[in-house]
């Protein structure tokens, strides 16, 4: 069974995100280890892209910081970060990046390295269902799940996307780009129910979640919650002191996703 699917077993999952090379090599390793220490069920590691069209200002800024620090930022450097991370934790890891990064490294070589280093999944916002065919068989061969995104306006695409999914399904909470929000789209429960009719693959809601209350609310609807911009903000604000803060935040959010909602 998929290691990512496993992370949802018997509990709600909390999935935080940080960007690689933000602030630097060592900082990335420390941040991911800190998230794992706080109880993250899966950690999403963002591979910076010059033009992250699905991301809001916070993650865009993180990508730019990361690339400013190292304009070339070779994929092999990021794989080396994962190697270091793997010396300290076996937390399930997934990459979030844009397809061009994977394409340039080569689909075969990229997913082979993922398998070798224990990257169990890829979230690629600019690879919709119709375009996953060029990567899917190669990823499958290397036991790398391609995590699809489902949105509040996916409509009749929901079942098709769900049927092809492995690992988990990323449910986009609302329209637009990533970033903290105070409100989410209506009908998320219906959306998750439609997915559950088609597949047992777990669901996690992301885009905009930052408070424990929101995490509790979203984890009532789905099987987990994904938090990106809020974690990236901690990294941006605290720099070298970020790991301790990330651990605390993760503990709080992890408790929140498994808390009973206040009615």
């Amino acid at each position: 069974m998929s290691k990512l699917t496993d992370a949802f077993k018997n509990q709600k999952a909390f999935i935080p995100f940080v960007a690689a090379n933000d602030p630097d090599f060592e900082g990335t390793v420390n941040n991911v280890v800190a998230l794992a220490k706080g109880g993250a069920d899966i950690v999403e590691l963002g591979i910076p892209f010059s033009d992250p069209i699905a991301d809001g200002p916070v993650i865009q800024a993180a990508d730019l910081r990361a690339l400013k620090a190292d304009p070339d930022l070779p994929m092999d450097t990021i794989f080396d970060m994962v190697k270091e991370i793997r010396k300290q934790t076996d937390v399930p890891l997934a990459f979030l990046t844009y397809l061009n990064i994977v394409f340039q490294y080569g689909y075969e070589a990229f997913t082979a390295r993922c398998e070798e280093l224990g990257i169990y999944g890829l979230v690629i916002p600019d690879m919709p269902l119709e375009e996953r065919g060029e990567l899917a068989p190669i990823a499958e061969k290397h036991n790398v799940d391609l995590i699809p995104l489902v949105t509040p306006i996916s409509a009749d695409r929901i079942e098709k996307i769900a049927a092809a999914a492995t690992g988990f399904i990323y449910v986009v909470s609302s329209l637009g780009v990533t970033g903290e929000r105070s409100e989410f789209a209506n009908g998320l429960a219906d959306l998750v129910n439609r997915i559950r009719k088609v597949t047992d693959v777990p669901t996690a809601i992301g885009f905009g979640i930052h408070t424990p209350e929101q995490a509790t609310e979203m984890a009532q609807i789905a099987d987990g919650a994904i938090v990106g911009s809020a974690c990236v903000n901690i990294v941006a604000e605290y720099g070298r002191q970020a790991p301790a803060k990330l651990t605390d935040y993760t503990k709080q959010m992890k408790a929140a996703v498994n808390a009973n909602p206040v009615r």
């Binding site: 910076p48 892209f49 010059s50 033009d51 069209i53 690339l67 304009p71 070339d72 930022l73 070779p74 994929m75 844009y98 397809l99 061009n100 990064i101 394409f103 340039q104 490294y105 600019d126």
Partner: peptide, 20 residues
């Protein structure tokens, strides 16, 4: 060189990693 960006597979000016 060949790449994927702005919704299309086409040719782009990019670095080795794939940054535009």
């Amino acid at each position: 060189s060949d790449g994927i960006f702005h919704g299309m597979k086409s040719m782009f000016l990019q670095n080795k990693t794939g940054q535009i």
